[in-house]
Design a protein around this nucleic acid. Structure first.
Length: 215
DNA sequence: CACCAGGCAAGTA
DNA sequence: TACTTGCATGGT
């Protein structure tokens, strides 16, 4: 079986099992970007607490986040963990958004994909996965988001080695699938759900929709 | 109690 | 270039 068929097989199985997940869980594109930074190496449940706190403080807009002092912001996003670090990263991103795109994600979206990706990667605190999450889920650009779950599942099923880097994992998907925003969005969503539900501890993998694929 | 979570940057050799 | 370490809360 070729790579394309293999990937589509995985997609069909997971998509049938989970159904349409309508990801990313956020009300607007700016909130997507904020969540992408807050969720770095952090459980989503903790991120939700921080997002709620931001909402209650009316800080879920570029202008509001731009104005709030960094130390005050840190205290508000405390439940998400690494809160001093993430306050600095949020401020860096919002400064970038304001300076480059008048604080408007809709203007940022117009930028050419590869140029925008490079510029996002230039912002302190935005690495490959965060950049790609913003590009796909906030900007509707056809990029595949790799993450720890993606890698773990591919490693478990013998499709890649444990030392495979981010770019190679992303290329595995993007070289063999049509660049379709809906496909990439749903694919990443079902992968994360699979990781959460089945792929954390080895014994639980028996009931995983992908269990039959294991060699 | 230990371990982990939808990473990233900075420091070291 | 290749490895190591700091960042931190909350759930299991």
């Amino acid at each position: 079986m070729g790579r394309q068929e293999e990937l589509l097989e995985i997609y069909e199985r997971l998509n049938s099992f989970f159904g349409d997940l309508h990801w990313w869980p956020a009300d607007d594109p700016f909130e997507v970007a904020v969540g992408a930074i807050l969720t770095q190496n952090t459980a989503w449940a903790n991120v939700e607490k921080a997002i709620q706190a931001l909402r209650q403080n009316r800080l879920l807009t570029p202008a509001a986040l731009f104005s709030v002092p960094e130390d005050e912001l840190a205290g508000i996003i405390r439940p998400s963990g690494y809160y001093h670090l993430k306050a600095r990263r949020l401020k860096a991103f919002v400064r970038f958004l304001v300076v480059e795109y008048s604080g408007d994600v809709d203007i940022m979206k117009v930028e050419d994909l590869s140029r925008l990706r490079d510029k996002l990667l230039g912002v302190n605190g935005i690495g490959p996965e965060t950049a790609d999450s913003i590009l796909l889920y906030a900007c509707q650009k056809p990029v595949f988001v790799g993450d720890t779950y993606t890698k773990r599942i591919l490693v478990r099923h013998g499709m890649i080695g444990n030392d495979t880097d981010y770019h190679s994992i992303q290329a595995l998907f993007m070289d063999h699938l049509q660049p379709d925003v809906s496909l990439f969005s749903q694919f990443h969503a079902v992968i994360v759900n699979t990781g959460k539900a089945f792929c954390r501890k080895e014994p639980r993998c028996s009931s995983c929709p992908l269990a039959i694929l294991r060699a």
